[in-house]
Design a protein around this nucleic acid. Structure first.
Lengths: 120, 120
DNA sequence: TCTACAGTGAACCATATGGTTCACTATCAA
DNA sequence: TTGATAGTGAACCATATGGTTCACTGTAGA
């Protein structure tokens, strides 16, 4: 696959912005219009539109416009390749760690708590 | 943890460059000096130094200077949080997929093949 | 038909990024 | 001590990024 590296570029870049990660999280709960997202993230429509476009180009979000409103949902691409990349590289040199899975579980819980803290 | 989001920002940004991913891959095989890396990636010393600094700031690489030469190794942080983030978000909405693990395995093999192709 | 609303696109702005060259320091080895 | 080598830092450059405002189009409702 020729575009493999370019796709990783785009996806990791898409994930490197806190707003865009927030949008993904939001869309994990429920679909939303661009206006919805713009309001939730205190940003102009135009600004949010750009973020959505970037996520869409990375395949992480799909959108559909019906009438005036464009609805955003999570895309079909679910970071399989990125997960695989990271997984592979962790395996590359992580033999020396034993309880890595438990660590991941721990961090997942931590992030969940972090997300809840944010919501308040 | 207050800096959680900032760290994800930095790490995903670090991973969004093909050269830096290449450096990580390279360091997975063997430690290397900045000069080594600069040559392998057809870049000036100064340019490579910047990449190394970015990887170092993200905690993905550690370096040690002995004499004139600064040796780079893979850092202790092994993308645990990034793996956890991605894993969590895949779980968020991937219940509808069955054979996801197999897909990941498939993609890992594909990436391996890709890397071998590149090496030729 | 009129008005308000959702989105789009162009232009602009400040800052960041990925790279370079050049001047400099420090160290190794003859 | 002298020359070559490894790295560092400042300055610079082109382009990308993350945001804005403003002018515009298209659609929904009264």
């Amino acid at each position: 696959m020729v575009h493999y590296q370019a796709r990783l570029d785009r996806t990791f870049a898409a994930l490197s912005d806190v707003t865009r990660r927030g949008v993904l999280e939001q869309l994990g709960n429920t679909d939303a219009s661009v206006t919805d997202l713009a309001q939730r993230f205190h940003m102009t429509l135009t600004g949010m539109k750009k973020h959505v476009s970037i996520l869409e180009q990375a395949g992480l979000v799909t959108t559909e416009k019906v009438g005036r409103v464009r609805t955003c949902k999570l895309g079909l691409r679910q970071l399989e390749e990125e997960a695989a990349w990271i997984e592979q590289h962790r395996q590359l040199w992580s033999a020396r760690f034993d309880a890595l899975d438990e660590l991941v579980e721990h961090l997942k819980r931590e992030e969940k708590a972090d997300a809840q803290r944010k919501r308040r």
